[in-house]
Design a protein around this nucleic acid. Structure first.
Lengths: 218, 218
DNA sequence: CGCCCGGCTGAACGCGCGTTTAGTCTGCTG
DNA sequence: CAGCAGACTAAACGCGCGTTCAGCCGGGCG
């Protein structure tokens, strides 16, 4: 299962990358023997390097978080916002990392909640910049709005995963690019409509919700 | 593990209900022996009634779909829309069914995609009624909009599940009522804001998206 | 009554899992 | 050169899984 391009990586890195891919494709129930076979090593070596299956998953999580951190740092220091968005849209550069994150969001675990928090913080920042630039409306609850929008993205990914398993769409863990284009095909128009025109015609609903919240916990 | 109220059920129904609960709480990796113990029967009896573990899950799926079908039928024939919403909001009556659906949405499978399709159809119908009543704005793509909104709900559930596993919120599969109130505490205000006022200030974005879609596939 | 059939069980089977152990090979170091 | 350390493996272990099988028990029927 080892490819020619893997030969320059240490066995440890090769195992970690193989696990990333396996877990993304088959979920975290995938066996150590399958990961070992993908990496071209013996099952015992996996445990020699990572201690246990949990250790392997923790190493995968750590590696993904580090990749995200590096990307974030780069986009903060060297890029304009436009370049950042372009990089985000180019999923090919992330390789199995994207699929692994999607699988984690579906399965839970520490990476999932940390990733969500990261996304919420980044979204809040982007929205604040948009408000300052005048392209985004200000909010009575910027943090809540960011969290709500992140939940929407999680839902779109989850529905893509469900559709993929039913054979109706490309899988975001197997072919992120195809899945993303398929998703944008149907979701962009509803999204733009929802974000540029009010869904509900009664403008007093927000005030009513705020009132009710105040009445419950003053 | 059998409770007094279970005694009047046939063993088959008791096993199915126990499986519903186990799968909802622990996921579909839960063992047959655990289900059998919960139902107060031997593991062999589970297979006697359902043939295999897959058969048991299929029976759970079928039972849940039947419950949903009955609920839908009742709400179509006997209830006003207001009563329907009130019933939907009262999660206690669904018991383990709600948690099982949430778990299915996270894990995929046939029930998940069928449930999503059901929700999309129902949402489209509700939105159409809202448009007719004047409370909801008309859409250029009613089906897409319904699907998009359902994806949002799936995302909220999935984030509740992630937060629950991180110990930050009640679990929607363990205590649906608590999870739902915790969710509404932070999500209602952003939702109302998002649905009553445009998030983006540039009104031409929808037309741009429609143009781009036309240009790609005429 | 004798029989049978379906609900039901205890015990076992084979399998694949994560993990352990003992040991080999290789390259560096004193 | 001897010796050590670390990468690596073959083989096995114990466990829990889904599943099978032979048989028990009780009620309905000819």
């Amino acid at each position: 299962m080892r490819s020619a391009t893997d030969d320059d990586l240490t066995a440890r890195a090769r195992i970690r990358d193989a696990a990333l891919l396996r877990f993304a494709r088959d979920g975290f129930g995938a066996g150590l023997r399958a990961v070992a076979a993908d990496a071209g090593v013996s099952p015992a070596l996996v445990l020699h390097h990572f201690g246990s299956k949990d250790g392997l998953r923790a190493a995968c999580d750590a590696h993904v978080l580090e990749r995200i951190r590096l990307q974030k740092e780069a986009s903060l220091t060297t890029e304009t916002p436009g370049e950042s968005m372009a990089h985000l849209a180019d999923l090919t550069q992330y390789g199995p990392v994207f699929g692994y994150v999607v699988r984690s969001l579906a399965s839970g675990g520490e990476l999932a909640s940390r990733f969500v928090d990261d996304m919420v913080a980044a979204t809040e920042q982007y929205l604040a910049a948009g408000v300052a630039a005048g392209t985004v409306s200000p909010s009575v609850d910027p943090a809540g709005r960011a969290r709500y929008l992140v939940a929407h993205s999680v839902g779109l990914l989850q529905m893509a995963l469900i559709d993929a398993e039913a054979g109706r769409a490309p899988s975001p863990t197997l072919d992120p690019v195809a899945a993303f284009t398929a998703l944008s095909r149907w979701a962009v128009v509803p999204a733009m409509e929802l974000y540029t025109a009010p869904l509900l015609t009664e403008p007093g609903l927000l005030a009513a919700a705020l009132d009710q919240l105040d009445r419950e916990e003053p």
